[in-house]
């Protein structure tokens, strides 16, 4: 049985949308209720920077993927 890779990309996008929503809510709560100072800004910038780095790196990798390829379940060996 073959599953198109693009299906997994859509599933990944769904998870990413949920993540984005939760991350946005968290950042807004921090900026709204945090004490004004370097701790609040630094933690928020660090969170967003690492998230951006990971998404950027994954995005670069995924840009070079052939999404017309398929994953053959029957031929996938278990460890």
């Amino acid at each position: 049985m073959s599953i198109p890779l693009v299906i997994f990309l859509f599933a990944w996008f769904v998870f990413l949308v949920i993540f984005t929503f939760l991350a946005l809510v968290s950042v807004v709560q921090m900026l709204r209720f945090g004490v004004a100072g370097p701790g609040t800004y630094l933690s928020t910038v660090t969170f967003l920077a690492v998230t951006g780095l990971v998404l950027g790196g994954v995005g670069l990798y995924l840009a070079g993927v052939d999404w017309n390829a398929t994953l053959d379940i029957a031929l996938t060996p278990l460890l």
């Binding site: 890779l5 997994f8 990309l9 994954v58 990798y61 995924l62 390829a69 994953l71 996938t76």
Partner: peptide, 9 residues
């Protein structure tokens, strides 16, 4: 390659 992509995702 498909398994690599799946792992990365």
């Amino acid at each position: 390659a498909a398994r690599s992509v799946l792992f990365i995702l």
